[in-house]
Design a protein around this nucleic acid. Structure first.
Lengths: 346, 346
DNA sequence: GAAGACGGTTGAAAGGTTTCAGGTCTGGAC
DNA sequence: GTCCAGACCTGAAACCTTTCAACCGTCTTC
């Protein structure tokens, strides 16, 4: 109640100077109370602390950063904040950051390059100590520029082609492979891969892994269809379902491998709503194994990624890069794992 | 390639001063190029722009903020980043912020007061222009202090008791009421309310609405059970399911109303996995109508909230508060709507 | 040819913090 | 009585940007 900043003559917020004046000490002492309290005698410290709370003093972080040149803040630029997968990754980052006493800002590029660029520009201007990002395109030159200009950056869930950054990935080719091997094992000989846009590395790699496994199984090349979606959302999954339903009966696949679980769940909904049975009429494999996959209308077979570990590892790499002078960039790769459930097992 | 900041003697990043020197102009002119390009002659402007890109100049936002006293940034402190409901709210905020050319930082309190307090402190120090928050406890004194100290704050999805803030809410009592009325209409006479902790206003209000409707229906008070959970997660929903299953047969409810969809989905999974049928053996109503509710094992009846509108409205109120001098605090309340699906309709 | 207007540019001041080389004072050792 | 160590405190400088009054030429206008 007594702690309002309105006691200042003008509308200004109280600064260390005001505190110093009220407590009858110098600026330096106030700063010491803030940063090295042990150096200040008890009496003085208490006087300063009282002055701070009387004035409602709040440290101005901009000024501190300006002086210090660093912010103790990381940021994670998410590719799609509505996808639980990226939230779990973010949670892993958050936990590691909290342990290291760093603040974390989350930004959402929403899959749009322009938004991503704006966020990156802003973060660089804010002088965050480091950036974690799941990029729209890992070869975007802006990323390299940011590193060259002095802000460390770690790529999450994408490989980096150049070795210019640390990166943490999951082997998407292997993920695509195990998904298809599972379907082939179950006797499927005509399968659709649903996902897009193909500009996304994840979409491409999973397809390539799938394609490789398909070819190795000796199946006809044209029997692995690629149904391209515009985004990786539940809605697009539904649309893909309708497109499949529109195919002539004999060219319809008996199984679908979706590039992520959102697409798979949307497709599942659409398929069920038209009275088809999963997996009898159509088997479905998803990707990511988000929490909702197990609880879907038909529990979803999915390729699980170590989501939280992905985030945590990325954050730890970034911490190392910001603290160890002789840091070397590393590419960490995790291994995905197929979780088989009813949507393929019947 | 040529744009590296390493051309500076020490490891310093280039500043306007360096740009000015290289371009043979004064500091003021560089600033004009940045902020009022029209005032600068074409030749000079081009020279300055070239110098900037040659040096890899990145404006120091801390210094600008220090000088300007404002940051053109809002922040949204989410209660639970893993709950799609809050992500949808955040998306509404993001869209409104983007239109107003404001940056948005997302923070996650993860339901913990301590983390929330740390985030708020940090945001205040960063001098964000305004804060949106779904608080752990809307009566937390820190919130009032922040406003008194000059940072506008809007409460999202909670009522504020004091009229000290703007707030945007959905009528949770009404939501609880419609959920119970629906179940009573379907003939249920023994129902469990599952959610917690009761310290959360949402949990309390939905319960109160449910209780009021229950009493008005003339049903026995003790036939509306309250099963308290520790958090509102899928996992806790499963645990609650086990607890219900542990009840003696005759005291088991025929329907459950869950305080949110995550809990409902977890409970649904648990119930199905034990071979019970939904809704025949147990009907379930959720809350929020997140995207995954419709695609659950049994499509979930849920109380829908206007998630994105909630966020957008909150952001618009905050924008008004930061721009209109004679702003008056408003409480906006939306109305929830029951979406009936298979989990109660059979 | 003088006065004024105007486009373009300058440079100092301000904004709040941290740092650091020095300052003062106290008390103990000789 | 002198000297010194240590504890405590001071105040100016630096960080980088924006702003604004002042300035300089050039062009109009009468």
């Amino acid at each position: 109640m007594s702690t309002t900043s309105r006691t200042l003559p003008n509308g200004r917020r109280p600064s260390v100077k005001d505190v110093a004046e009220l407590a009858q000490v110098s600026l330096g002492t106030v700063s010491n109370v803030l940063n090295r309290p042990a150096r200040v005698s008890t009496g003085t410290r208490e006087r300063v602390e009282k002055a701070m709370s009387d004035l409602g003093f709040v440290l101005n972080e901009s000024a501190r950063q300006l002086r210090m040149g660093r912010s103790n803040t990381f940021a994670y630029v998410m590719l799609d904040a509505t996808n639980p997968f990226f939230n779990d990754v973010g949670r892993g980052i958050e936990l590691a950051a909290e342990e290291a006493d760093l603040s974390l800002f989350l930004c959402n590029s929403d899959g749009r390059s322009a938004r991503e660029a704006a966020h990156l520009e802003h973060l660089q201007q804010q002088r965050v100590d480091g950036i974690l990002i799941t990029p729209v395109d890992p070869d975007e030159p802006q990323l390299r520029r940011i590193v060259q200009q002095g802000t460390p950056l770690v790529i999450v869930d994408r490989a980096n082609t150049s070795g210019q950054f640390c990166s943490v990935t999951v082997d998407d080719r292997l993920g695509g492979r195990v998904a298809i091997e599972h379907l082939v094992d179950r006797g499927h000989t005509r399968v659709a891969y649903v996902g897009g846009p193909s500009t996304m590395g994840q979409v491409r790699d999973r397809y390539e892994g799938a394609r490789a496994a398909w070819d190795e199984a000796g199946l006809a090349e044209s029997d692995l269809l690629h149904v391209e979606t515009t985004t990786m959302s539940v809605e697009e999954g539904r649309v893909a379902g309708e497109r499949l339903a529109g195919l002539p009966r004999r060219s319809r696949p008996s199984a679908v491998f979706c590039a992520n679980d959102l697409v798979a769940l949307g497709l599942l909904q659409q398929v069920i709503s038209t009275g088809q049975r999963v997996p009898e009429d159509l088997a479905i494999v998803g990707y990511d194994d988000i929490a909702f996959a197990a609880g879907a209308a038909v529990p979803l077979t999915s390729v699980r990624q170590p989501r939280q570990a992905l985030g945590r590892t990325a954050a730890e790499l970034l911490i190392e890069e910001t603290t160890e002078p002789d840091h070397e960039h590393q590419q960490v790769e995790f291994t995905p794992e197929l979780i088989a459930r009813t949507s393929t097992l019947g």
